Computed example of a mutant assay.
Amino acid sequence: MSDTKPTFSSLGLPKADEESIDAYAKSRGVPTLDRKPKPRSPSVTIRTDVPDYLAQAMRIEAAKTRSTLRYLILKALKNDGWKIDEGDIVEDGRRPGVHR
């Protein structure tokens, strides 16, 4: 077996910082990820009791839509006319920046 390492020609890729990578991808028509999550307001916990059938239905809906109970509740409150900032209504709060 030979100890000679192969030589490769340069691909002429940009330096590896996020701005350069995004610019390179954009120039080639490649979509980029949203790495900048929208800021969320500070949160507090509010506890309440709801009928068992409602809690079960909400958990099933959250699982089907791959969202969270928090998302379903905030969306329902917004639809009812409450003022809620868009940055606070996140489908999956575990992974910032992930939006469907």
Rank of each mutant, 00 (worst) to 15 (best):
R35Q: 13
D49R: 15
Y71K: 01
R59I: 04
D52P: 04
T68H: 07
M58G: 03
D80P: 00
I84P: 10
D22L: 07
Y24F: 15
A62F: 05
R59F: 06
R40P: 00
D17V: 10
I89N: 05
K36C: 04
G87Y: 01
G12R: 01
S10W: 06
A76F: 06
R100N: 08
W82M: 14
V98G: 00
A63I: 10
A63W: 03
M1T: 09
P31G: 08
A57C: 08
G29S: 05
S41K: 00
R47M: 05
I46N: 05
D3E: 12
V50M: 14
D88T: 05
V50F: 07
E19W: 05
Q56V: 15
L33R: 15
S43E: 11
R100F: 05
D92F: 09
R59D: 14
H99P: 03
R94S: 10
D17A: 03
A76V: 07
S9F: 07
L13S: 04
S27T: 12
R28I: 01
A62V: 03
D34K: 14
D80A: 15
D85Q: 10
Y71M: 06
V44A: 09
E91N: 09
R100I: 11
K83C: 05
I21G: 02
R40V: 12
L77M: 07
I89M: 06
D92I: 04
M58A: 14
Y71A: 00
R70S: 15
P51V: 09
V50D: 00
N79A: 14
L11F: 08
G97I: 07
K15A: 10
S67T: 12
G87S: 03
L13N: 06
R95N: 14
K5F: 05
R35A: 13
R47G: 14
L11M: 11
R95K: 12
Q56D: 11
L69D: 01
K78F: 04
G81N: 08
L72N: 02
A55N: 07
I46F: 11
L13C: 02
E61P: 00
D52Y: 11
D92G: 03
V90Q: 12
D92S: 08
A62T: 01
T4G: 00
P39D: 03
E61H: 10
R70W: 02
G97F: 09
Y24H: 14
R95H: 13
V30F: 13
L74I: 08
D92M: 10
E18G: 02
P37G: 06
R95I: 14
G29Y: 06
N79T: 09
K78D: 05
